[in-house]
Design a protein around this nucleic acid. Structure first.
Lengths: 232, 232
DNA sequence: ATTTTATAATTGTAAGACAATTAGGATAAA
DNA sequence: TTTATCCTAATTGTCTTACAATTATAAAAT
């Protein structure tokens, strides 16, 4: 099953260029099961003949697909069907709102709040232990612990093992990181306290409780950062 | 501020093609404030001279940016900086997992759970009234009410007014719609009951309560749909 | 003033050519 | 036989040129 792009209200009369059509057809080739993840696509010259289009048109289509992370090309080797969904498209999109810290924070908050509910359902014992180690590391390790802090959130997010959510949160965490790296609001005690509460809720596998603890945490962080960023 | 794409672990030695570089430079042009949303970009020939690249290279870059929804081109008119963030990139990405209903449902669930928490903070009186009308419509209107049901969820999602989250949820709702349109699990009474509970929690502006009610609702729907889809 | 027409501007598509580098095979040497 | 080296072919990356198609604008005619 393939989504037809032409349902957006924006361009109600969508420009139907050859290269866009070619891109759609290639997506169909990939999704239809003819090719599996990681497979090599036919070389350009062959695709040209298959689709009977010119090389520039094909290359425009390929560029689009590559920027969407659907394929990737190795110079003088070939074109490959991407192994997993990447976050390239999101990064590009986010670069358009990189001046808007509140929007990024809010988006990250929403995503993490949704993720933790699912994490409470699915997180494994291993991941829980890994999570606990990060809390200990923060409380014991001297100096800057921002990397460990991030690790805590990443473990939770990726414990859901959902490729779509993975790429969404990945891009937001990076964007958030970029924008807030000059804002220092670390409070070790608060972090340990909050993280511990979240951890315990996950251990009890209670989505509502995990949500509440995460909400308190992120709400606190959000307010701190927005206050700091208004100062700076 | 612009995100550099080259941080992904996937292609640790990222292929640095001219067209990709050109795409980045154009993004910089847009983001740097020289151009505002909706503005027309210089024609291709001018950009070629500005960036001193060949036309195919420029066009490959433009194709990428267009597929990412950053710009859009009108034939024989010109290229424009997109007004708002679209959901094109997400649709393309989702087409790769369109065979995986559980993944889509889960992603939608996570996003909606995050969104409702923020909606409880921000939803306006107007939007609440609109929401209430959809509940009445479902209970009173005979026949298929799936469109009204979707409207309920859309109102909540878009009440947050976050462009990033908008595009994420938009694509997921469409994908979900496509995949589940053959699965009929409508139960009018349950829908009204659940929606009412959610509505009341939003009215009380309680994120945890709104979350809980939405979680119960989506959990119920999820189980129903997955059971149905396994049958079919 | 309005309509028609023509011109210019702009994007869309095609074809051909060369560069560059990698992979794999052929060849030579140990 | 094994290993190392070299060469050739395959493939992507880039450039140049050209033409098509259509729209917007300006000019001209009514």
């Amino acid at each position: 099953m393939v989504i037809n792009q032409n349902h957006t209200l924006l361009d109600s009369v969508p420009r139907k260029t050859l290269s866009k059509e070619v891109a759609d057809r290639i997506i169909q080739l990939l999704v239809s099961g003819n090719l599996k993840r990681g497979d090599k696509l036919p070389p350009e010259m062959e695709l040209i003949k298959m689709l009977s289009v010119s090389r520039p048109v094909l290359r425009e289509a390929m560029s689009s697909l590559e920027s969407l992370g659907i394929i990737h090309r190795k110079t003088r080797d070939g074109t490959y069907f991407s192994e997993k969904i990447g976050s390239q498209p999101y990064f590009n999109m986010l670069s358009l709102v990189m001046d808007d810290l509140p929007t990024i924070i809010e988006a990250r908050m929403a995503l993490e709040l949704g993720l933790i509910a699912l994490a409470a359902e699915k997180i494994t014992q291993n991941e829980l232990e890994h999570l606990y180690q990060t809390i200990e590391a923060i409380s014991k390790h001297p100096g800057n612990y921002s990397e460990i802090d991030k690790e805590f959130h990443r473990i939770i997010a990726f414990s859901v093992h959902n490729p779509v959510l993975d790429s969404m949160i990945d891009s937001l965490l990076v964007a958030f990181d970029q924008m807030s790296k000059n804002i220092e609001v670390r409070e070790r005690n608060v972090a340990v306290e909050h993280h511990t509460a979240i951890y315990e809720a996950l251990e009890r596998r209670s989505p509502p409780e995990a949500f509440s603890k995460m909400y308190e945490h992120l709400d606190y962080v959000r307010k701190k950062i927005l206050k700091e960023s208004r100062k700076g």
